[in-house]
Design a protein around this nucleic acid. Structure first.
Lengths: 110, 110
DNA sequence: CAGATAGTTCGCTAACCGTCGTACAATTAG
DNA sequence: CTAATTGTACGACGGTTAGCGAACTATCTG
């Protein structure tokens, strides 16, 4: 099962915007941006969704070219494709990151 | 039939991004950006879609807070809500505008 | 008034999307 | 080998969406 990542030239604005238009996915992207390219496995995002649903969201992000997924043991390491996004759509990622609000409605902040 | 426009504080990133994630709507936004706040009626965008479908797209844009629609005679004047968007999501609109590619697949370019 | 013009509204269809559960695959730990 | 962990694949579901056509409203112009 080869993980397909679109090449930089193949990035499509509408596809990227659509990938970013879901609160859960926005939250994922935000977390990834904070963690740099660290061991962000698919779990541990504090999102209250099923495993299969998470897989779905990560795939949407990956196929839109927003993130990279690299298998590592039984996990997958996710990272933002900052360079590619900045190259193709300058300023877009930063603007979106700055616009992301509170969590999408998962854990109570107290 | 009151045209509802969300107030600036009620603008939602995901909603805006979703509104912008359609090639046709992206094209509309691009044209509006070029024309400033000029007499951009709903037709005249060179989009090969039915009137009802156009109505639909303009409503999505309006309800997301991306555009304003003001009735003027038998037409409607559309304009970008630049100020509001820039205030809530600084840099986002410009980044998206810069990223918009060729037309979404409508009229022959020459 | 009559006609033209510009959008809206209302079904309706086909596709898509987010979500889930269950079953499966792959890797690591005992 | 067995069990646990992590994620994927697949099928199903309900809701949303983009698109159309046809009928309608509202305005402006004769």
């Amino acid at each position: 099962m080869n993980l397909h990542h679109p090449s930089r030239e193949d990035l499509d604005v509408s596809m990227v915007l659509h990938a970013l238009s879901d609160p859960h996915r926005l939250h994922i992207v935000k977390k990834l941006a904070e963690h740099g390219a660290e061991p962000c496995s698919c779990g541990g995002f504090g999102i209250d969704l099923t495993k299969s649903t998470l897989t779905h969201h990560f795939r949407v992000l990956r196929e839109a070219g927003v993130i990279t997924q690299r298998p590592a043991g039984t996990s997958k390491l996710n990272s933002l494709r900052r360079e590619d996004l900045d190259a193709r759509f300058p300023g877009l990622l930063d603007a979106v990151l700055a616009a992301i609000p509170a969590p999408p409605a998962a854990q109570v902040p107290v």
